[in-house]
Write a protein that binds this DNA or RNA. Sequence first.
DNA 1: GCAACTGTAACTATATTTGTTACAGACGAA
DNA 2: TTCGTCTGTAACAAATATAGTTACAGTTGC
Lengths: 160, 160
Amino acid sequence: MSTSSRFAVAVHVLTLMAWADDEPLKSEQVAESVNTNPVVIRRMLCELAEAKLVVSQSGAMGGSKLAREPKEITLLDIYQAVENRGVFSLHRHPPNRHCPVGVNIGTVLNQVLDEVDTAVERVLANITIRDVVSRLRPCVGSTVTRRKQTAKEQVLAVRN
Amino acid sequence: MSTSSRFAVAVHVLTLMAWADDEPLKSEQVAESVNTNPVVIRRMLCELAEAKLVVSQSGAMGGSKLAREPKEITLLDIYQAVENRGVFSLHRHPPNRHCPVGVNIGTVLNQVLDEVDTAVERVLANITIRDVVSRLRPCVGSTVTRRKQTAKEQVLAVRN
DNA sequence: GCAACTGTAACTATATTTGTTACAGACGAA
DNA sequence: TTCGTCTGTAACAAATATAGTTACAGTTGC
């Protein structure tokens, strides 16, 4: 199955931006939270920008932020932006066309895989980044010491 | 996503056996229909045998056949037998525990991924190998010349 | 005993994803 | 206008996963 963590990372990135509340985040800050290389993040941000989920600004004081409200971004949007293939794959090499099963199994499998993809998409379409953030908050109270500190400060204080 | 074709191949294999109707198939025959190496098939057959979906017999005149009726084998059974991971993966390296988002995003993502997996499983649980075979038959009439020939003969005639 | 199979180990090959270095170009501020 | 700070992107290395191959021990029917 998904051997890639692209979807998980993308959700993480957009969640950070929702948390940071319109303050542009630098790729290095994001990378530090995700625990990867800034270039990996920038690559992903390009895809997310193409899908119009984030906007980025070059140059000093630049960074990236959400292109629209967290409640207007679904996990399906993210999924479609960063994950090109469906959930399953067909045979690497096409089956034997001289076998009555081999010649048609692809058609049937595609029907099944479509049903699966549709089911996945239905789930993802019903979850927004706002939902993710709100599911996140309950955990935060118990793990992070609470003082007068904005969410943005918390995100930016990653290296402490 | 699933970069692997294991599920597709496994469905193909069990469909062949349902088609062959209790006649044991040799790994080489199956490999020829799937268009791969017999050892790849034997490896998969071992997993399917562990999951009690097929039974194999060593030695001359050996081979593998379904362990139970096609209508009693769901695609979910197959999925669980050959595909160990869920649909999506989390981060390769765990996120930064000092970030309020990073420390808890895993929990939220796991909830989401569970919802997705559940949706996938619900779809697969409702499709049996018998369904696959019956979806296959309509195609066969139009692509394979019909004469007095049993399904088993057709499968075995792969190399013609 | 022999020929025909499976089960399995040990590789190699291939593909995909992730991580890294390097640098051109955008941009704000002094 | 120059400088330091960012993004965008190319080019490549490393890590991982999947698929394919060869080889052979062990089973089984004849």
